[in-house]
Design a protein around this nucleic acid. Structure first.
Lengths: 99, 99, 99, 99
DNA sequence: GTGGTCTAGACCACA
DNA sequence: GTGGTCTAGACCACG
């Protein structure tokens, strides 16, 4: 799978910040000029490798395979979960913080 | 959904007293770690099955499916409606005990 | 109503930017230490004066009474986003209306 | 809701052909200027009344309440289900003409 | 302060 | 590329 390898490479080379959100499936499809299903297949592959845990209704986030292997459950803290905000590099998540 | 089945099971197993009020949607959302809309979906499903009639501005109450089948329309009087005074202190509206 | 006057004053003195969103009703209630209903009443009063049109599901925004009186339809442009045709061009913000 | 009644009226007045597919939820959302979830609510309501059975991955189709009442279960075969091939071009599945 | 409805946008499952 | 479900958070109506 070309696209899967493409994005996997980006992550492994550090071109995509850990904790950052991937563009939406639709955006990626348009960016790559491929069908949505192809994008989904690629994302799914990466998900299964633990590179980009998808959080339903929120987005798909990049984590570090390395960290994943090391920490296991601690990963939960690295991924922006239901309530917490991770405060990683360039995190567009905590929107509600300002008054 | 899982949460709907979860609470439905609690009711059917009698873990939730008939006539008691469920925690508010917000509380349940926090308890389950899901968005409020997800909670609403679950509650709605149960509402449609007649297990937990929701009363606007008051709360959501558990009734007994058994009693429901037995009593039919008479149940309507057992559910805290506009006219009734169950909003007051300690009125468990036991449906079954009048049979 | 003290709170209504308070925020109305803020707007009229320009302390709240035109087009900006007000804090949520809950936040305002906490800020002022009053019940939610009080806040709602205050907001409602301002809404009726055209100071802070509330957009369902989005928030409450401040506009300029002056501009409101002048332009009417141009008000839509004063509210951030107004993406939809809900209040469309030439429609004085009646969100709840539909054919 | 208003939109639900709107489209329900269209169907009941015969402005939407029986067997025809409704625009997608996204299209309807854009047409009405509302969020997709609002559209879903409306569609859902109609679905529960049997007016517009939704078929996952295919679309939402209009049937006739009248025919529904007459035909009962036979209607099931008229609605594009898993087995049928109405996904192809031009299969108007006219429910009423077999009566 | 509860339930009810809505915005805006994401991922998921089916075809 | 559709319908299905979910997140996150706002305003609305009832009491």
């Amino acid at each position: 799978m070309v696209v899967a390898n493409h994005i996997a490479g980006q992550i492994e080379r550090g071109e995509r910040a850990v904790g950052s959100r991937l563009p939406s499936e639709l955006d990626l499809s348009n960016m790559w000029g491929v069908a949505r299903m192809t994008t989904r297949r690629a994302i799914r592959e990466l998900s299964e490798r633990g590179l980009v845990p998808a959080v339903h209704g929120k987005g798909t986030f990049v984590t570090q395979p390395d960290a994943w292997a090391r920490a296991g459950s601690r990963l939960a803290g690295a991924i922006p979960e239901c309530h917490s905000g991770i405060g990683g590099p360039g995190t567009p998540l905590s929107v509600a913080e300002d008054a």
